[in-house]
Design a protein around this nucleic acid. Structure first.
Lengths: 120, 120
DNA sequence: TTTCACACTTACTTTTTGGTTAGTACTTGT
DNA sequence: ACAAGTACTAACCAAAAAGTAAGTGTGAAA
């Protein structure tokens, strides 16, 4: 773990006490992959390997990392069957489902404003 | 300008041809400040100095940088009166206004799910 | 002559995010 | 004995985003 200045602006900005609603939301779904993952889970649970095939441009590490964070934030549920080979499913929690209007709006906006977009 | 590997995954991911709607939207409004800036402009034009007072946790550099990008992306209009001292107003373009449902949804979600949030 | 308001820039550093490569664990099938 | 399948993890590195501190230009007012 790298040390960091405790009162840098970065730290202040990450301090929950200083967070406005918008920053809070951005923190939960920001970054390159979280919205895509959540959106892919909108209809059905998906296994790790399925997500990996869909998010073809991500690496396994990123996927695992993002899923872990989403689980920590209570947006996604991880359901691991205790079998070999492993079988792990991810699906939206109730809290995660409350994000669907946001995610749909974002996806729709992107579809309308990016002429070159393709599904993902 | 720093050089960069042309076929790194980062470059690929930034290539418009590979972008799905969600990534496109994230690229336009992602990061720590853009949504907040856009949201502050939802009702009225604001001057640089006014934004700076509202986004108290940002620096002038970040503000200028984000506004420039938002203008480049056609989401915000910069209206500079040719007077001294300068008087520059920023407001949402028509395209920028189409983001309002997304922004409202994000702000609302944050308000509901972050007990500690405060206005910003 | 200096100061002030305003809207920025510039050069540099730190922090955060994302990527590469390799490897782990466990059991079944060959 | 070894490969296959699944879901990861670890160590290390690169790139992008954000932050710090200082400075710029203009004209009018003090």
């Amino acid at each position: 773990m790298a040390k960091r200045k405790e009162n840098s602006t970065n730290s202040l900005n990450n301090n929950v006490l200083t967070k406005c609603p918008m920053s809070f939301t951005i923190e939960m779904i920001g970054g390159r992959w979280k919205t895509i993952i959540l959106y892919q889970l909108r209809n059905e649970p998906l296994r790790f390997g399925q997500l990996r095939k869909i998010l073809i441009l991500t690496t396994e590490k990123m996927l695992a990392q993002q899923l872990k964070q989403l689980e920590l934030d209570g947006l996604v549920v991880r359901d691991a069957k205790e079998i070999i080979p492993p079988h792990v499913e991810y699906y939206l929690s109730e809290k995660g489902k409350t994000l669907l209007p946001v995610l749909e709006a974002m996806a729709e906006w992107g579809k309308v404003h990016n002429q070159l977009s393709k599904e993902c």
